[in-house]
Design a protein around this nucleic acid. Structure first.
Length: 375
DNA sequence: CAGTCGTGGGA
DNA sequence: TTCCCAAGACT
């Protein structure tokens, strides 16, 4: 299926002067990649809480899945403490499937991309309800589960179930684009990158191969200043031979981020502050938050204030940058003493001293810290 | 396909 | 400081 076997692994390719016939649609790799890469991995694999040492039996699929979801667009350093927290609170699918969803969202707070947490819960419920509490072991069945896309399905199939799967993440894209000096810009290059990744993926130790590619991309074949002389593949890398490996993969120009403006409303009542729950989908969906007005192209002032009280605007703002826009928040504070019935129908009064336990997304945690500092 | 969706860290 | 990225998925 991969067309990756080298001539050296079978009887002589040529006999009687007859040219070898192509065996595969995609061009066969001109050099062995998996061999030296796995050899390097055996000596240099990172030790990670969700990972089995090279060559060992596959780790718990639940832990592999949880780590893969958390690691989507997220650094290992950020994932480590959250992985420890989640595996302590919910050690398996059965526990997560019956978990209090608000507690899961609170535990996820700060990690970002909160749809992952919503899909995490949904996936655990499906696994328990339809798969008897265990993952289905085929890539196609994994792909059908909430929050599991092409990359994660392949990663779980190979790492947790020992199946051959073509695992392509940003690391693999970078390593492969450099190995073959693929000059086509992304995203058009993805077809060729995937074909090349398929061609170099071995049948045996497919999961170790995937993790080795990611370790290589993370520590050696880095986005800038790759450490080529420490790379086990540099003697067979077109990018290294070109003298400018960092130019691959070629990426499209980025668009400027728009700037938006909003207002945070800090309503106090006897040492507590009013918190609300954001709508279930969209930006920061499902997360507990401070009340906000609209996020608009110009400062919206006190529009959409959660309570009809006297607001005082602080002489400071809080800046935050999301993936696709910047946000500058004005800060409005108000005292609701004497309005004790107010607010109960729109949110909850949270003790200010325990605000860190509310599970606020970082943008609101920053605003809360700034308001408490200034007050 | 292209836009949406967070955050922290490295250079 | 500013820019860019990190084990992508979903619509």
């Amino acid at each position: 299926m991969s067309g990756r076997r080298a001539c050296s692994s079978r009887p002589p390719c040529h006999s009687g002067g007859v040219p070898a016939k192509p065996r595969s649609i995609s061009p066969p790799p001109a050099r062995d990649i998996a061999g030296p890469l796995l050899h390097w991995y055996d000596a240099h694999a990172r030790t990670l809480p969700w990972r089995a040492p090279p060559g060992n039996p596959a780790p718990d699929p639940y832990r592999v899945w949880l780590s893969e979801i958390m690691l989507q667009q997220t650094t290992v350093a950020a994932v480590r403490p959250k992985f420890d927290l989640f595996t302590t609170l919910w050690p398996d699918f059965a526990a997560l499937a019956v978990a209090d969803e608000a507690e899961v969202m609170t535990a996820w707070a700060g990690l970002g991309y909160y749809a992952r947490a919503r899909n995490l819960i949904a996936c655990a419920k499906v696994v328990v309800a339809k798969h008897d509490g265990r993952f289905p072991a085929t890539e196609a069945q994994l792909r059908a589960l909430p929050g599991i896309g092409d990359y994660t399905a392949a990663a779980i199939a190979s790492i947790a179930f020992g199946q051959r799967a073509v695992v392509v993440d940003a690391n693999v894209e970078r390593v492969v684009a450099r190995l073959y000096a693929i000059a086509t810009p992304l995203p058009a290059a993805r077809t060729a990158i995937r074909a090349a990744a398929d061609a170099i993926t071995p049948d045996a130790r497919s999961g170790d191969f995937a993790q080795a590619m990611m370790d290589l991309g993370s520590g050696i074949c880095t986005f800038r200043a790759p450490k080529c002389l420490a790379c086990p593949l540099h003697d067979r890398c077109d990018g290294f031979a070109s003298g400018a490996p960092e130019q691959y993969p070629v990426k499209p120009a980025k668009l400027a981020k728009p700037q938006r403006y909003g207002t945070i409303f800090w309503a106090e009542r006897g040492g507590s502050v009013l918190l609300v729950r954001r709508p279930p989908k969209g930006l920061l969906g499902g997360m507990r938050s401070l009340p906000t007005g609209p996020w608009a192209d110009t400062p919206p002032g006190l529009a959409d204030a959660p309570l009809d009280i006297a607001w005082r605007t602080l002489d400071r703002t809080v800046a935050h940058v999301f993936t696709h826009f910047g946000l500058e928040l004005s800060l409005a504070v108000g005292d609701v003493e004497g309005h004790s019935a107010i607010g109960a129908n729109i949110g909850e009064w949270w003790p200010i001293a325990d605000i860190e336990s509310a599970g606020l997304p970082t943008v609101f945690a920053k605003a809360a810290a700034e308001i408490r500092r200034v007050q």
